[in-house]
Simulated scan of single mutants.
Amino acid sequence: MIKTNPHLRIGQREVESVIAMTELVSGIDDQQGGRYARPMAASFLVNAIGPYLKAEAPDEVRRALLSAAADHCYLTGYMAMDERLDGLANRYYLKALELSRLAGDELTFCTTLRGMSVMHGDLGDGVTAIRLARSASAASPQAGPRMRAFLAGQEAHAAALTGDRALAMLRIKQAESAMEKAESQAKAFGSYDPSALHYHISQVRYELDDLDGAIKSMQESHQAREPAYRRTRVRYGAMLAERKFKAGRLDEACTDWHRVLDEYPLVQSGRVDDRIREMQTLMTPHLRNPSARELHDRSRSMAT
């Protein structure tokens, strides 16, 4: 239980300020990356949300505050993961689970479990990723179609990481079906949209050794992505280039990587940095090729 401060009382206005700040920081993160946005979120968490959580409040306001604080902790954890501060991200995620449980906020609880699954998948830990993805799905039995697609897409990717082809394909079909229903309705959940679904399909195909299919789906993801998500566009653009390179399409890959480098200086993201380093590693054996040499030299000059 959280101890309360009898000398401080809050109302719905403070809850709305937490929601507004979370939305503001989320937009900055989408454009500029976690390394830029997380310090703002962390400072607000300590200096505003912390005291609010200890303040006196009516029960309805307290539940709303716990829910808003949980969402803010989840976002802060996601940005820490984007920085590649995975231990710190996990601590924020655990706090988000605690707060959302206290609030009875099923949506944020399962979203956080899903975020933890993404983190472990990025680290190559498919076993933990699939366990967390299943827990996320189980935590939200009454989810609407967009949320079901959101959860099924991650479970499909995690299953593919473990080599479970049958489960991965089943979950992708479920995600596609749920997304079709969701798109026929008003948008109701965050940023999970056809672009995100195509990304999950690409990830599943890639892990199941369908390289051409993975490239096709990643291109479809790119075409469907909203302009606001620059950090995602840069990171996934680099992943698309990597896959084209592995398919022997060197010139196309170099063209895509140059597009990535056009926006790379605008993004502060450890996960994007990982992709640039991977590109440099892949190019090193091919420096006799003029396109590869030009790309490699450009990326090194930007890093310097």
Rank of each mutant, 00 (worst) to 15 (best):
A139N: 03
D122G: 15
G163C: 08
F109G: 02
E263A: 14
S184D: 03
F150R: 08
T108L: 06
R277G: 14
E155W: 04
T76M: 06
T162Q: 10
L66R: 09
K3G: 09
N289H: 14
Q12Y: 10
L211M: 10
A96N: 03
L151D: 04
S221Y: 00
A41Y: 02
R288P: 00
I130Q: 13
A159Y: 10
A238Q: 08
M239S: 10
G34D: 05
G213I: 00
P290Q: 06
N47L: 06
Y236A: 04
G87P: 00
E242K: 08
A175W: 04
E180F: 03
A166D: 15
S117Y: 07
A70P: 00
M81L: 12
G27P: 00
D122P: 01
D29V: 06
G153E: 11
D210Y: 07
L66F: 13
E226C: 01
H286D: 09
M81W: 14
R298V: 01
Q174V: 07
E183G: 01
E16T: 03
R38H: 11
V15H: 12
P227C: 01
V127H: 12
A42G: 01
G124H: 06
M116K: 06
D29T: 04
M239Q: 13
A158Q: 06
V25F: 08
V272N: 08
A292Q: 00
E14L: 06
S137Y: 07
V61M: 07
R9L: 03
Y264Q: 02
L24I: 08
G144F: 04
L208V: 03
L8W: 05
R114Q: 12
A238R: 09
T128C: 01
A152C: 06
A20T: 11
T162G: 04
I201S: 02
D210K: 05
L287G: 08
Q268F: 13
S191C: 02
L261H: 07
A138V: 09
E207K: 13
K181L: 15
G33D: 02
D82S: 06
R205D: 05
T4D: 02
T162L: 05
L8Q: 09
Q223S: 15
K246R: 15
L208K: 02
L94G: 00
T255H: 13
